[in-house]
Design a protein around this nucleic acid. Structure first.
Lengths: 216, 216, 216, 216
DNA sequence: AATGAATGAGCATTCATTCAT
DNA sequence: TATGAATGAATGCTCATTCAT
């Protein structure tokens, strides 16, 4: 676990306790959003005292900031793996889709937290952390596309920036559709109750959709 | 304005005052979400007393319900116009995109409210209203696509349900990207600061993206 | 109906409407007590506007005062009938008990109101009205007893004041036991569920109890 | 003090503070009844914060329930002492009257609370606690009387249930007459201003009244 | 260092009273 | 004269934050 962004006092405690606090906080913030999240409940669910929470974090805002940082770091790890792989455009897209499907299931709360983040207006600090991640992703996708254009894999005359944006939109909503109640219900309305047992169908069709948009 | 879903007491007041209350409520709920929205603030911003608010609505929940109903009705009006028009697949998509661009600008708070709705869990009544709208939209898109398949305009072997879902995902995030702070910033990261002065570019590229995905 | 204690504006309205207002107010005050009684509800149940209520009464306190006055006047009428009758000690007691049994059933709310009055502390004006009635009753009972002592009907060496007090205590609680939920349940605990179908048994035993206490 | 019915958090605080809270609550509820009682005022008068009150009790209802439980327990203690004593019918009655006179003076607010309880309608839980006590008392009195009948001390042909009821009525109103403003004033009307300096006179006459009713 | 009891400002809701129509 | 919409102070309850132990 990356400890850089934690206060001395939060770094010094046992890995186990730190995980309990982070998990509890992620769950609470993702479930209720910043304003409605309850610090006393976070402490209780984590099995530590409120007093300790205020030793680890300056206040609610700071706690949220730390949690977001932690979430972004977790996501970066996943993204890096995909970036590393040296593949074709299609191969990369497929990998991302599969990664989203598996990540959304194992990190439901982090995804919900991301959705929460898009609604409330937060401090500049929070925005800084998240925009940093968005920039990384954006840059990565745009490069992929430009590279693919150069290699003659995808249409030359499409705008890489906007197409990267549209593609990420599809990814973001796919992610939410596997994690957030509202979007899950919405997906069921479109495709049917059993859609969550058909990951391959969804992945396959999304591949076709994106390939159709990009490929010659 | 559709008055059907309003309590007698809210119907009887002047159009002007009703608008002030609705606007204030939509803004508050869209900004803070249900739980953190402040009724006293809604009253103050609308220029009426709290007491009056509680004459117009049974309670916070009922007020939210009314607001959501109102938002959905407003959206339905826009959708209906598009549905009416008897056009080609391409023509319809273009109309929808243009409508989103203009609707998102004139109804910023309604769109933000929609985004808020996706995070908190709400009463069955709220979900009923919204799922009703999602179902309508879903059904409409799926029909468009099936019809277009029959006419030989779009690929025969794509799954209409999933493609409708992906297409709506693009529309939903486009809408958010024109209204919600977070998504607006994200769009700027992808495309640049001046993206909001280039509606035609965005619309044009999204058309290309979707046409590529669907057309033969 | 005695109109003396009503404001000009309350006197001028139709007998029918005045009765509706009085009934509604008696019911409300007897059910909820002074503080929790709701003027708007009184108006609604009476079928008049709040505005009118405030034409008929200066404020909540004044309304309560009027109601209590009205209740006391109603009770006085009943008491007078009994006083008039020229009978033996026993005959009078029996008449009173029967009167309580029938009065409590037809004027449930007035009796409940009386019980309510004993809990909250009210203005001097209210107390003046009620103490006036208590004095009348007390005086009446004490005279009865003295008279009966002189006639040699009851024990000479008992204290007429205290015995009058004890006797009235029995009457008061009998009254409550036929009207107020709590006391009704309590009576059922003592005597059984079917006690309210056995007025004669109750009356008979109470006669015996009192006669035993007083008679030689 | 019996702590069984208190929440952990209310049991853990100092005896002194607990007493302050109980006293303040008993006084408030007995003065204003459940609905009009003011939690903020209870907290202030007890010298604790509202927040603390809500740590000790779940809500107003729970607080009231606890208070009633506490009041009933206090009363039970007094009753038990009398029950224990193995005496003649007369001896027991005298003891009860004396106990009422002393209890009413030391526990004015508990008695007022009892009177308040008879006006408002309360939850089943509250009624359960109180009816339990009424049943105990009723059973006790009825046994006393039956026992006395068997021993040939009191009239054989009186109904033990109804006579127990009438006797308790005398006790209840005696209790109120020593504690509740209204009934105190009423007693003064009957007997005179100095009645509260003549406990023995009152007790003596009440003994005579009851003995006359019961004894052969 | 860790605890968790205590604080009190803040918010949803009610209701006596007013006053424009 | 009668109406009832409007007002806003008051109250039950929550929760971020502090601090004595």
């Amino acid at each position: 676990m990356k400890l850089d962004n934690f206060k001395e006092s939060f770094r010094k405690i046992s890995e186990e306790k730190r995980k309990a606090v982070l998990d509890s906080a992620v769950q609470e913030f993702s479930e209720y959003g910043f304003t409605s999240a309850n610090i006393n409940r976070i402490a209780e669910n984590a099995g530590v005292s409120v007093g300790s929470i205020y030793k680890y974090f300056d206040n609610k805002e700071d706690m949220f900031l730390t949690i977001v940082h932690f979430a972004v770091d977790t996501l970066k790890t996943v993204l890096n793996e995909i970036i590393q792989s040296d593949e074709t455009f299609e191969g990369r897209i497929e990998k991302i889709i599969k990664a989203i499907q598996s990540y959304s299931r194992t990190n439901v709360y982090l995804t919900k937290l991301y959705n929460e983040m898009t609604t409330e207006s937060h401090s500049n600090l929070v925005w800084k952390i998240v925009s940093d991640m968005e920039s990384t992703t954006a840059g990565m996708y745009i490069s992929f596309i430009r590279e693919a254009q150069e290699k003659g894999w995808v249409k030359k005359d499409l705008d890489p920036k906007l197409f990267a944006f549209f593609m990420d939109n599809l990814f973001v909503l796919l992610q939410f559709s596997y994690s957030c109640e509202y979007y899950k219900e919405r997906l069921k309305i479109y495709v049917g109750e059993d859609v969550f047992d058909n990951d391959d169908l969804v992945a396959g069709q999304l591949m076709r959709f994106i390939k159709g948009a990009f490929l010659l």
